[in-house]
Design a protein around this nucleic acid. Structure first.
Lengths: 212, 212, 212, 212
DNA sequence: TATGAATGAGTTTTCATTCAT
DNA sequence: CATGAATGAAAACTCATTCAT
């Protein structure tokens, strides 16, 4: 599990996990109301049921809230992977759609916080000390995606040139949701999902008709 | 043209336009380096060749920089419309692709600033005093889009159920670029454009073959 | 006791009282040197032995310093009331003079700060959110005055038409001190007091000779 | 006429007087709405029908507005003196009451501005460069008062110990009006005047009955 | 661990004043 | 004389972070 390196890590036990979960959920609630830089550390701490200063026992600074968001969301996604794999009956196409749907669900669940994460990570990722940590956090999700795509190509069920741009495109499709559901109107998740699924099936999957 | 109401705006219109353009370009440069809330008003003013306080002669507060971004980008887009219409030979399909391409170009030109605009507008738009101004600023672009789509449907060249969701979807496709080109890797604009164009043609346009 | 409502006031009441007293005394010292709008919050904080930003733990903004002045002065006056009543032997005339003398003493003790309070309250009182708070703060003093005057009239020891204008007149006599002692010369408090006392006795009290 | 010493006085003619009068009246109107330090130079200039920077042709700085207030009010009072003297039939007692009534009228006419003048002059008067100018401006009024009082005493029509404290007391009575009419309620000018007149007659004038 | 008062660096914003036109 | 755009010093206020308890 991706764990941020700390000088004096708190006694890593259930308490830490509980507290970090509290903080994550509190941050999501607060960030649904106001942008990252208007949300104060104190506000998030209080929302999490902690005193203003106590957050620093579990986080080294405000920026780490961004990492915590990424970490927690990826964790939820990762937890769903075994079930998805089990339900895909070894068909990489089902598996891909399953992963994408799971990502969409997580993003939708923490819609506002995801938008914040997406925006802030852009800048955080430029600072060397965060760049690697971020990559590390995202790794489980990206690896799963890549693995599924690769198996799909190997089995001649999917077609595409570049793995990198493919992974990226899939991620963009998923996260486009969070963006679209912001500025303009209330998009319907299910109809958005149907669009995505159709797009993926049409352009990525090798047509079944081509196989006789 | 959307113009923010000011108590005592400077009189000289040409000067105001020049200065606001300077500030817009300066803001784009600064926002390419750091997020909105880390970019200080002073920094943007200096980048624009103005003294720290002088920005307040042309802007009522830091938030208005966001409005200025929207205003300036939409203005560039709007200026391109006549040419697009002229070149479309009255074919709404060509026109739609032209508008989308123009939007993509503007977004790509001010990539980082657009991402900031996109993110901050989400929060700005919640405050009533900004909501309407934002709508007003976006209106010329959205109206042109709507008009083109409507003519396309009337001429039985395009097909879709809801106008509103269509406008939204098109906008999402265009702006997805700015988001995607941020976090992960450097996407190639032309290949992204080909994806968009293919998607629009395939799902939105009435197939030519169906017409004989 | 009039207490300004705060979102998250510090919990420890004794500490709050101590700090607010420190700030009050510091403000008095600073306002003896310069007018309210030239006295910076930082200067008052430092004079109070606090860091620049710490004043905002106990005050919501600079304006509240005015409220703090009123609150503190009225509190000192109110504390003296029991002693005054005890020493007046149930004679409303003695009581009235006692209250007026106590007011004069408080005003003289914080002469400069009182002048500031008097001036600034004029403008603060126009803003609805402050108007009621100010009234609430002054209430204990005005009520005591009114009560004494009413008992004096009921006992046929004092004579006057309007209670409201009487309260006002008495207040003006007391606070005239702070104003008079400013611009022109150093007036002698005791001789000013003799004037006031003579005026009140002569025009307000029913002559003793009229009672046989 | 009291004139502030200036390095490069504007061509002293009717224009200067007109402009300074405009500025004075504008300042009175603005200061009726907000305190001195919230009233901007620009606002006063515009209210006077001048551009923001033009005020500096007639004033050396914002502080001089205070001097202008004093100068203008004293001038109005001084202009009334001949008429008062003419109507007093050489009776210093009538003359004193006339002067006081004239002062009360001026103060009432520019009530809010007078309160500002009264408050700010307290601090302005401490700075050496302003102290003497202020004295010079007030001189005509104070001298007239002193002269009348002295003639009253010489003619054995008035009685008092110290001339200085008498002048001061009279001034306090007059200006108490501006103060009293601020914080608490709307005092009636005429009833206030009757109080003053009675007070002066009772305690200052030699009783007519004592003369036979 | 947990607290929350204290800190002070950093930001936005205002506005008196200047000066080129 | 008149203008009003430009300036930049100064001030109020915020808040991430620390640390004694």
């Amino acid at each position: 599990m991706p764990q941020v390196v700390r000088l004096q890590p708190p006694q890593d036990d259930a308490l830490v996990r509980t507290r970090r979960r509290q903080i994550f959920l509190a941050a999501c609630r607060v960030l649904a109301r106001k942008p990252f830089h208007q949300a104060t550390v104190k506000e998030i701490a209080l929302e999490a049921g902690l005193a203003a200063g106590s957050i620093y026992v579990y986080l080294q600074g405000k920026d780490e809230i961004i990492l915590l968001l990424a970490e927690s969301m990826v964790a939820e996604l990762t937890e769903a992977l075994p079930t998805i794999r089990a339900g895909s009956l070894s068909d990489p196409r089902r598996e891909l759609l399953g992963i994408m749907r799971a990502a969409l669900d997580v993003i939708d669940r923490y819609r506002e916080a995801f938008a914040v994460l997406n925006h802030e990570a852009r800048y955080l990722g430029r600072r060397p000390q965060y760049r690697d940590v971020l990559k590390q956090i995202l790794a489980p999700y990206l690896l799963a995606l890549k693995d599924t795509l690769e198996r799909g190509r190997a089995a001649r069920l999917m077609r595409f040139d570049s793995m990198a741009s493919m992974v990226e495109a899939v991620h963009m499709l998923c996260s486009g949701w969070a963006m679209g559901s912001g500025l303009l109107a209330k998009t319907d998740k299910e109809s958005y999902w149907r669009e995505i699924a159709a797009l993926v099936e049409g352009r990525l999957f090798v047509p079944a008709a081509a196989k006789p």
